[in-house]
Write a protein that binds this DNA or RNA. Structure first.
Lengths: 197, 197
DNA sequence: CTGCCTAACTAACGATCGTTAGGCTACCAC
DNA sequence: GTGGTAGCCTAACGATCGTTAGTTAGGCAG
């Protein structure tokens, strides 16, 4: 990924470090060192450390939201009202965003707590809205008998925890390409929801 | 929980704060303030900040290991060689430890990265060994046809991610007692592994 | 040649960090 | 009462934190 702008290069490096050590444990001077530059020099491109975190988290959130938009539209076009199709599309989209930029997505998943009050609240709302998409299809699936009876809230957080777990181990150069991983997660998720025992 | 010793009180407060804000974002003086004491006073009971983290992480790790020991022994006594029984027992034990002290367990799950090199490596080994117990039963289950065919590594990390996700939302005073949550997780996990689609 | 823009620099600010040193007070055993 | 010990205090250390200020070097446009 060629650095299109200096600002972007800073956010890329910051994503990497925030993901690896966490926001609080990463100093401005750490980010600068990775760019072979003095710490104070970053403030020509950035207004504060939290601003960098916010830029990363906000962009990642937008990616997840837009991917979910497309996924829901596609699923509705293919098999309208089919909860399994909708969940499969959402999971596949989620894994795609997660694996397209593990650092950025990993920061979104783990470091949003470090944001200030206002921004943290804002992200929390968007997370809730995002979760609600999954829960909506799960509840619908239970209602029409496509999914086995369960507590929809627990099923929702379990699905999302399972999928987000990928961020902890995914390696772009590892065994299994991203879409193979998505296949497995879709399979496991649908079994979990549909499964009759 | 009555403070049996001063050292224990420090670790309890530290578990709470480390879990809420993270290790790096929590200062010694934050912990002291929660105990209505000066920061420097803690060093009468503690040799370093990292020592406190280590005590919490080590204890939590031991709890998970011992609970898994008992779970595997019980499962083997009840239904020897039954992979479903073994996984159910492991999941139930894991949820029990997680919910018995969410702060401590949450720190173990999320903050072990903050440990120094040596201790981090040590915990990583124990985590791997712990994961291997799950993977062993999953592989066995696939081999004997009890579980549906899948990638055992992905299935293992997915199960553990799903279960660890509880630490992010569990509230001891919330709806649903801990063992109900365990019931749901066992159900979802077994569906995921056994489910035929 | 001049002037602006980008990107970096050095130096320093006040705050906070983890930690050490040394002293004080209250209680309990003998 | 004497000695020990558990628990806390104040004061301070050197390091590092996020951030501001003012300056310098290079390249491109007029």
């Amino acid at each position: 990924m060629v650095e299109t702008s200096r600002r972007q290069a800073i956010e890329d490096v910051a994503s990497d470090l925030f993901r690896e050590r966490g926001y609080a444990a990463t100093s401005i001077r750490d980010i600068a060192r990775a760019l072979s530059v003095q710490g104070a020099s970053l403030y020509a491109h950035v207004t504060s450390k939290e601003d960098v975190l916010w830029a990363i988290v906000d962009r990642a959130a937008t990616r997840f939201e837009q991917a979910a938009d497309r996924a829901e539209a596609d699923a509705a076009a293919r098999r309208p009202g089919d909860p399994g199709e909708a969940i499969a599309a959402l999971v596949r989209a989620h894994v795609a965003v997660l694996t397209a930029d593990v650092d950025e997505a990993g920061v979104f998943v783990n470091e949003w707590r470090a944001l200030g009050d206002e921004r943290r609240r804002s992200i929390l709302e968007r997370r809730d809205a995002y979760q609600s998409r999954f829960r909506g299809h799960i509840e619908h699936g239970i209602a029409v008998g496509a999914f086995a009876m369960t507590d929809p809230s627990i099923a929702t957080t379990t699905v999302l925890s399972a999928v987000n777990g990928i961020a902890a181990w995914y390696d772009p150069d590892g065994r299994l390409p991203a879409d193979r991983i998505a296949d497995h997660l879709v399979e496991l998720t649908l079994r979990m929801l549909e499964g009759s025992r």
